[in-house]
């Protein structure tokens, strides 16, 4: 279980997070929605310690993440970055197998490669892709390689930053199903950021909406449509007029 309490983060005068309270229960799929630039990516990075919050407390299973042993802590996580963040000096399969080939549980090369190819298949990429370099792939393909890398070591907690952005509708469906499967079958805890409401409905157990540096609404996905929060309603129906300003 991940718990955030009163987490705040500013970049200069830009107060991005202003006291976020959020609980992500173990084994559940939490989807974070919210306007562009509201700090969703910063939120994920704060949990991982890639961004240091100015104040507030983040705990994993009750222990403060800042006091955790970094290696042991990070070994429990997988992360898909919004921009893919593939290592462009390494081949696709070496990207996917990066964690498998390092550290205490290091696998032999051919075994790591076989797992990488299997993960690539799960995100809809052919084995031939394995020997290409990231620069030779399309944007959507890079995204899926990033996804394969995030799930390769079968971590217990996985963060997906916009997993279906830039994918065609069919591929989006494949990825949504994959994320759902990872949560239900492997028991992983997932936290996904998305702008795509059909993804929200396909992936989420719970939904949280980030607005103006705070969690505006959070609850089970089934309650989302009945909720009477005008911000949430404007967002999920994509209306131009409402309480959320269109210039942000």
């Amino acid at each position: 279980m991940i718990e955030l309490s009163r987490v705040a983060k500013s970049f200069g005068k830009n107060h991005v997070l202003r006291g976020v309270n959020l609980t992500i229960p173990r084994g559940q799929s939490m989807v974070v929605i919210g306007g562009s630039g509201t700090g969703k990516s910063v939120l994920l990075k704060s949990i991982l310690g890639l961004v240091t919050p100015d104040s507030g407390r983040i705990t994993l299973d009750g222990a403060d993440v800042r006091e955790a042993n970094r290696d042991a802590f990070l070994a429990r996580f997988g992360m898909l970055f919004q921009g893919g963040a593939l290592f462009d000096s390494l081949r696709v399969w070496e990207n996917v197998a990066f964690r498998l080939m390092r550290g205490a549980t290091k696998l032999p090369k051919d075994q790591a490669r076989a797992i990488a190819i299997e993960k690539l298949r799960r995100v809809g990429l052919k084995p031939e892709t394995a020997d290409l370099f990231p620069g030779e792939l399309s944007g959507g393909m890079q995204k899926r390689v990033g996804l394969a890398r995030a799930i390769a070591a079968e971590p217990e907690i996985i963060f997906f930053d916009e997993p279906t952005t830039g994918l065609d509708p069919i591929m989006s469906g494949v990825i949504n199903a994959l994320i759902r499967e990872i949560v239900t079958e492997m028991g992983a805890t997932a936290m996904t950021i998305t702008h795509d409401m059909s993804s929200v409905r396909a992936i989420a157990d719970r939904v949280a909406m980030l607005h103006d540096g705070l969690i505006r609404w959070t609850g089970p996905v089934a309650d989302m449509d009945q909720a009477d929060d005008p911000y949430l309603q404007q967002f999920i129906h994509g209306r131009a007029d409402g309480p959320i300003e269109s210039v942000r």
Binding site: L48, L50, A75, F77, G78, M79, Q82, G83, L86, R99
Partner: peptide, 16 residues
């Protein structure tokens, strides 16, 4: 370039 494209962050999350 690695820093700007979040590859350094990715290294960290991959326990490297």
């Amino acid at each position: 370039t690695m820093k700007v494209t979040e590859q350094i962050d990715a290294l960290t999350t991959l326990s490297t």
